[in-house]
Structures are given as structure tokens and as C-alpha cells.
């Protein structure tokens, strides 16, 4: 190889290394931009909101006076709605996922259904609100209640549960299925004894992630007519008198934390904005805890069941 050629190759190599370095820098900058924006937002929210947090804030109803206002009805409402959402979405989503993965014949119809489930996850949430207004509120007569809200959010996050359930099931190696079938298990026994237990970690993760998505939803709940100012709690589910258990709370009106936030932000007084920030901090903390739990569960199950 001649000397001049060596020089040429070296120069070219240097140019390639520079390009490499440049791309790494651009990538890092993009990452930092995303992270810093998020951190700045969270910092700002925390700086405004955290000083307002107190037990009183959690234990008071909203009020005309910003400093006497609290989020009692909002967090109780959120909890109730989430309970309904979970009860509705877990059995339906998991069963649908198991069916699609283990039972459904692999044909064009199944492919179309699969495609539609993925698309369903991308539908704007307000559309679900409109659908729920027509179906649950008017058609079924559930009213503007916790039940309506829970079912609406359940439908909204159903695709997430179905998709994550399927992914968790698909991670189970086929050799395990064959091992179970080979000793004479029926399909239902395989699902019951193997498929669901071994994918439970992934399924649980999907459920938590779907609930943490639902907890922050505002638009569909406003559409179905959630109240923005509410100074009472739903009927308690248990009472001292017969029949002791009551489901009246399902039909009660409600508000949830993001709607409470939205209400306070839209007021002119800055004190209410502080309340909104404090609510935001709590909502964010709840979401973080839920996602943290999801990551932990996934980690635990991965350690227990590895293929």
C-alpha cells in the first residue's frame, strides 16, 4: 500500500470517527432535552404544590376559599372509579388476551380483530367519553355515576390489558405447552395451570400500567358529566344496619383528582392554582408508585420464572 493511500484511508477514518462522535452528541442532547423538560416540569409542580400538602388538604372537601379547600372527594372518587375500572377490565382483558393467544384459530378474522385491538388503544379518549355518554348514561341509565366512569375508563384501557396479556403469554416457550399437553392436559388445564400462572407477572404489570393510565384521564369523564365541585362522599359500601353491604356508591355522582385540578386551574385566584399543583403532586406520586410497583412485580416474576 502506498504512503499516499495510507494517508487517504486515515483521513477517511478520522472523518468517520467524527461522524460517530457527532451523532452520539446529538442523541445525548435530545435525551437531555426530554429529561430536563420533564424534570423542570416536575420541579416546578413540586415547588408550588408540596408546601400546600397537609393532612387537612387530604381530609377537606373543596370550598369557595382556597385555603380551606381539600381533595377528599376527589381522591375518594378516584379510588372508587379505579376500583370499578379494575373489576371491569381485569377479567375481560385477561380472558380476551388468553382467548386470542391460546384458543382463537389463526385466520384472517383473528388478524382483523388483532389489528383493531391495537387501533383501539390509539383512539382519542374523548371518543370513549362520547360513546359512554350515549351508552352508559342514557341507554343503560347508569347516570353520571361512579359506575359509568369506571366502565368508561375500563373500556379505554382494555386494549392495553389485552395486548400486555398476549405479550406475556407469548413469552412462554412452546415446549412448556407441549410438556403439559403431552401428559394429557386439556386446553383449559394448560391455561389454568400453566399459561395464566406463568404469565401472571406480565399480566399484572399490564394491569397496573393500564390503571395508571386511567387514573390521569380527564376528558372522557368530563364528557360523561363528572361534577367539578362536590362536597360529599359516595354512600359507604358497608353500614351498621341490615343489609350491611350497599352498592349505592356505584350510582353516586363523583369527581376525580384530574378534574379537581382542572377546576382549580381554571379559577382566576392564584391560591387555587397552588391547590391544583398540590393535587398534581399527589397524582404524580400515585402514578409513580403504581409504575414502580409494576417494575418491581415484573422483576420479581422474571427472577422466579426464567426460560
Amino acid at each position: 500500500m502506498s504512503r499516499s493511500e495510507m494517508v487517504r484511508i486515515e483521513r477517511h477514518l478520522n472523518r468517520r470517527k467524527v461522524a460517530d462522535f457527532l451523532f452520539a452528541m446529538v442523541g445525548l442532547l435530545c435525551l437531555l432535552f426530554a429529561l430536563l423538560t420533564l424534570l423542570a416540569l416536575m420541579y416546578d409542580l413540586a415547588r408550588t404544590g408540596v408546601p400546600r400538602l397537609s393532612l387537612d388538604f387530604l381530609a377537606s372537601f373543596p370550598s369557595r376559599f382556597a385555603d380551606r379547600s381539600g381533595i377528599l372527594s376527589a381522591w375518594v372518587g378516584t379510588l372508587c372509579v379505579m376500583a370499578v375500572t379494575a373489576v371491569a377490565v381485569i377479567p375481560v382483558g385477561v380472558a380476551a388476551g388468553v382467548y386470542l393467544e391460546e384458543y382463537a384459530p389463526k385466520n384472517a378474522l383473528t388478524a382483523i380483530i388483532e389489528l383493531n385491538i391495537i387501533n383501539l388503544a390509539a383512539i382519542p379518549s374523548i371518543t370513549f367519553g362520547l360513546m359512554a355518554l350515549g351508552l352508559f348514561v342514557y341507554e343503560f341509565g347508569f347516570g353520571q355515576s361512579i359506575l359509568t366512569a369506571g366502565l368508561t375508563l375500563g373500556l379505554l384501557v382494555l386494549p392495553i390489558v389485552i395486548v400486555t396479556t398476549r405479550e406475556a403469554i407469548r413469552a412462554i416457550p412452546n415446549t412448556i405447552r407441549e410438556a403439559a399437553y403431552a401428559v394429557g392436559a386439556s386446553k383449559w388445564q394448560v391455561v389454568q395451570h400453566h399459561i395464566v400462572p406463568y404469565s401472571a407477572g406480565g399480566i399484572l404489570t399490564g394491569i397496573i400500567i393500564s390503571l395508571s393510565r386511567a387514573i390521569g384521564e380527564t376528558a372522557p369523564l368530563i364528557t360523561i358529566g363528572a361534577l367539578t365541585f362536590i362536597a360529599f362522599l359516595p354512600t359507604p359500601p358497608v353500614s351498621g344496619d341490615a343489609p350491611y353491604v350497599s352498592f349505592q356508591w356505584l350510582m353516586d355522582p363523583f369527581t376525580v383528582m384530574p378534574i379537581q385540578m382542572f377546576n382549580w386551574v381554571s379559577r382566576p385566584q392564584p391560591e387555587f392554582h397552588v391547590n391544583a399543583a398540590a393535587t398534581g403532586v399527589i397524582l404524580l406520586a400515585m402514578t409513580l408508585v403504581m409504575n414502580g410497583a409494576a417494575i418491581y412485580i415484573r422483576y420479581r416474576f422474571r427472577k422466579r420464572v426464567k426460560w
Partner: peptide, 14 residues
């Protein structure tokens, strides 16, 4: 399958 059982190529315990 209840009368004829099988052992696979790769060990596949549950």
C-alpha cells in the same frame, strides 16, 4: 396422550 407419554429434546420442566 394419557396412554402414550413423551420426553422432549430439550428438558422442559414446568
Amino acid at each position: 396422550r394419557m396412554r402414550i407419554s413423551m420426553v422432549f429434546q430439550k428438558p422442559n420442566p414446568f
